[in-house]
Structures are given as structure tokens and as C-alpha cells.
Design a protein around this nucleic acid. Sequence first.
DNA 1: CAAAACTGCGATCAGTGTTCGCTATATACG
DNA 2: CGTATATAGCGAACACTGATCGCAGTTTTG
Lengths: 247, 247
Amino acid sequence: MTEEPRTSDRGPSIWARPERSARGPSPEHSRAKIASAGITLADASGLGAVTMRSVAAAIGTAPASLYRYVATRDELVELMADQVYGEFSYHEPGSGHPVTDLLRLAHQGRAIYHRHPWLLDVRAAGNLPGPNAVAFMEHALAALSGTGLTGSARLETVGLFSGAVRLFAQTEIEQQDAGRDTAQWQGSLAGYLLPIAAAGQHPHLAAALADQPALDDPGQHQPLFDRAMTRILTGLLPPGRTPPEFS
Amino acid sequence: MTEEPRTSDRGPSIWARPERSARGPSPEHSRAKIASAGITLADASGLGAVTMRSVAAAIGTAPASLYRYVATRDELVELMADQVYGEFSYHEPGSGHPVTDLLRLAHQGRAIYHRHPWLLDVRAAGNLPGPNAVAFMEHALAALSGTGLTGSARLETVGLFSGAVRLFAQTEIEQQDAGRDTAQWQGSLAGYLLPIAAAGQHPHLAAALADQPALDDPGQHQPLFDRAMTRILTGLLPPGRTPPEFS
DNA sequence: CAAAACTGCGATCAGTGTTCGCTATATACG
DNA sequence: CGTATATAGCGAACACTGATCGCAGTTTTG
């Protein structure tokens, strides 16, 4: 279960433990291999398909053997999440404009969520950030170095920024899932919400449902993401720093 | 598991089914009672403590009997979530300023998340909104009626607004949980992050960790929530509408 | 009054994360 | 070199989960 221990002193985090100790036979697998197997399963069939048994079968071992690499299933998911954070690339030089640089990171994050939608189901609360998450923090903090924010304000801004990316990606993916099977969609939400609106108790809902455009063409989300993300960023950041792509 | 069916045509939603049919003996319980029992359990011990068996025991019945009221555990969680959305109150008149009115809703939402932190673990994706969620949408849409946004833009804005409230609440609650046991906190994250920063590979992380204030006094979050939320809202909304509390 | 439809539920199933104890194997140390 | 030590892989099992089936009792419908 990916629930909330919220206040529990389970042993040291997986990032604080060495992957392998000196003694004993050399392991036949690795954290990276196990995480990759889990990611493949989750990409194909969702996070629910990532069970100790299925992952073990995927790498050709017994379920109990996984616990030589991972203390719990949640740790396996932690490995998966951090491995996926490794898909960020920081090769571009950095423009000096916080909004521009963060927007670049946001685009990459958006792509990662689209590639691995199960990441939306991962609750990081209370887990230590893995090495790739730390690398992401480092580069996001670097983008904020020009601002006059204090250290803790920068850390907080990075958290809010990551959350905003997650939020936008989630909105997009849900819309995308909904639009996939239009027949089901019309039959479920519209067929459920329209009668409610027609009952007269919810005039504003009725008005909003009344003037819907035909259907969002998929290519139109990119500018929306950019514009909304830019606005949120300029809101989070202290004023006075106008990004260059603004008139 | 609260995982993603993401594309499944399970039967009609619980909101489309009548709570009780005419024939047969009258039920000894109700959806509301079951939801309340679940909420009590979740408030006390997290969403993971809400099992069919524990809820059944809480209302004094057998586990199998719950399936007369609910088709699946996820539906039970849906009931819980919607019942909690019922804690919004819409008695205040409405100022006519979108940002002011939405901020009022945001405060209530924030309070709800603080009262029921397990709500952060509930993934609504793909579920139909319950009556209380619909009521919330109605009032959020009402706040947006003055803006020049189209119907679908208003609906989307409500979704992003709700997500932003959730995001801020989550950030606050995580910080709050972290600050509760300072000893554990110092020993885990700081003791884990500081060596990384000291290694020299992450200069911006080191700089951000360097100038941390003593400790956030809890009463200081309120203005931060207001300020950041206001900024996000003014970013999401079309320009030109300056809320009255701004100079 | 009988047919139909529902409620409560004991028993049970399949699936889950996790643990225990075993054997085999590799390193560390004297 | 030899022995202690710590690990790797894992079969078997445990506790617990959500969910199903079918039966007996109860209420409404016609």
C-alpha cells in the first residue's frame, strides 16, 4: 500500500544504505534493474501491476529475493520514481532568466509525466529525495539563484513549482484519457452532469456546459501549458523580472 | 488499491445508482453512515486504516454486508471524499471579485485538507463528482462568471484552482509533519541533504540550505497561503481585474 | 397469498506485502 | 590456508486485503 505512515521511524532510507556490502556472494541483480522492470510494468499496466511477484517474475527471480535489494514495496516505487527523474537533461546552458529556465524544466517534467503517468500516483511525502531528485532540485535552485529569495523561500518555490508541473500534467492526462473514448465520455460525465445542470439548481454549471467548443484538438495544449505555467511562475517569483518572450 | 483503472467501464457510478430501491427490507445502515465511519477511521489513522473489515466493524456489521451499499472500496472512498466536500459553506454573499471569492473558497478547502489529510491520498481521476463536489463546482463557477472566460475555460480554471488549493495544502501539511518531531527531522533530511551539499557537487543546494531561518512559526503560513494563492489566481485569470485588497 | 426483490452475512477465494529459516557462496581475518 | 562472518537466493508460509457466492430472512408488489 502506498499509504501514509506520515509519522514512522522506519529504518534508514534506501538512499542512505549501500547497495551492496563487501561480504557475501555478489548479487545477481541490481537496484537499477529492479527499478527498470517496475517501470516497464507500470508504463504498460499502471502502478497497480507492480507487485513484488510481478517484478520478481520480470527479472527472473523469486519474490522473496527482492527483499535483498529493497526493504519494502514502497522503496521499490521510490527507486522507480528516482530513476524516472533521471530522464531530465541539463545540457542547455541556462539563460539567466528564472522563468525561462524553469519553463524549460517544466517542459521536461511534463514529458516525463506523459511518458510515465503512474508517477502521478506516487506520493513522495516523507520520502527522502533520491540522487536524481536532488539533481533536479539543484538545477531548479540554480534557476532561482538570480532572484532575491531567501534560501528557504527558494526551496519552497521549487516544491511549489514541481507541484504545479505535476498539477498541469495531471489535468492534461485526465483530459486526454477522457477524450480517448468519446462514446464512454459522452455517456458518463456529460450524461451525468447535463441533467444536473438542466434541473435548474446549478445555473453557472449549466452556463459553462452550454458553450463548449467542439473538442479540444490535442495540439492546442502546448501553448496553454506555456501560458498558464508562465503566469504561475511570475506569480510565485518576486516581481520585476519580465521574461524575454514577453512583449 | 486506489490505483488507476484509467480506462475501464465499470458499471454506473454510485451517484447514478439510487441509494435504496423500493422492494425488500429497509437497510439497517446508509451511505452517509458508512462514509462517516470511514472518515472517522481515516482521520485517526490514515486512509490505509479504512478497510472493508474495519468500517464494517465500526458500524457493527459484517464485511460482506457493506457491498449492499457500495460496489467497491474505491466507491467507499468516493463517498468519504464527497461527504467531506460537504463541509464547504456558501453562506457568504459573494463580492463580485473573482479573486476574492475564490480565495474564500480556497481558505475553506485548506481547512478541509488540514482536518482530513487523507484527502490528499484520494485520486479522483475518472470518478464522477458527487453532489457536494458539484455544488463546489457551481460556486466556483459562479465566482468566475464575471470574467470573460469561455465555458470550457471556466471549467478548466476550476480544476486548476482546486489543484492549486490541494497543492498548497499538501505543502503545508508535509512541512507541518516534518516540523513535528524536530529530532527525527534533523536526523533524516538535514542529516542526509547536508552531506550531499557539502560534497561540493550541488552548490545551489548548499547555498539554499545555508540561510535557513530558525524554524517557521506555524502562524506565519496564513499570509503566505494568501499571497501565493492570490498570485496564482491572478495568473490564471484574465488580466485587468485587480482585487480590492491590493494597493 | 404468492412471486419478486431485496438485506444481512458466514464461508471462502484469490491476491497482496512480508517474514522465517534454510543452503550456498563469497569475503575478511588470524 | 582455514575458519568465522555476513551475505544471496528462495521455498514455504503468515496475516491481511478486497471481493464473491449462495442461503435464510424480510419486505413490497400484484
